[in-house]
Amino acid sequence: MIEIDRVSQIFQTSSRKDHLALSDISLTIEDGAFVSILGPSGCGKSTLLYIVGGFVSPTSGLAKMKGKAITGPGPDRGPVFQEFALFPWKTVLGNVMYGPRQQGVRAADAEAQSKALIEMVGLKGYENFYPKELSGGMKQRVALARTLAYHPEVLLMDEPFGALDAHTRTRLQNDLLNIWERDRKTVLFVTHSVEEAVFLSDKVVMMSKSPGRIRQVIDIDLPRPRRRTELLLDPRYQKYVVDIERMFDDSDEPASNP
């Protein structure tokens, strides 16, 4: 269980003014839950993820995992960054193998596991390519495989499918759901797409901007396992999507306000 308890984050900007990026966020994420965060650009979604990852310590408040305060990163929480952050000096295989090797898995085993993961994300044949030789969407998939490779209990995904074409996106959404249904990992998933959030999640957290706050948490009560084609025709699914979009439309906050 992840507990976020009255977390606020203040950034010092270069003009020396304090910027309140997150204000008094409280949120509980059950083990094995799939939770999406939706919100306008700049509302602090990434920052919240970094705090759970232990990369950033909040200015005030506390984030806890399994009852223990989060003080730093660890292989129990695997991030997939918006910017991919692949190691440019390693090949696709080298990137994916990095985690298992770091965990002390034998080279041959790590290689076999990594190759299977690379195949799963649809990059078979690209094992020996360097990140610079891949397209944006391919890099994104390598980043996902690299994180899955060390079997984190919690996945922290920052718009992981943002750079993908619609087809690959759908495929990876299904793959992610399959992995999740099999392993029941806890997933904290940032996205801009309302459909994606409703399709994947148990819970959608809607945030608002300036300062970043939680506006509303909506439970998505749709049966699992979910099939995309069935769901698209399901009036309950459609209602969730429309309701959430209305809520964003109704808010009088301009989309980009510093």
Binding site: P75, G78, E83
Partner: peptide
């Protein structure tokens, strides 16, 4: 060095 490279390695248990 890109901060997120360091973060990625730390998260992988380095």
């Amino acid at each position: 060095v890109e901060q997120k490279l360091i973060w990625s390695a730390m998260a992988a248990g380095t």
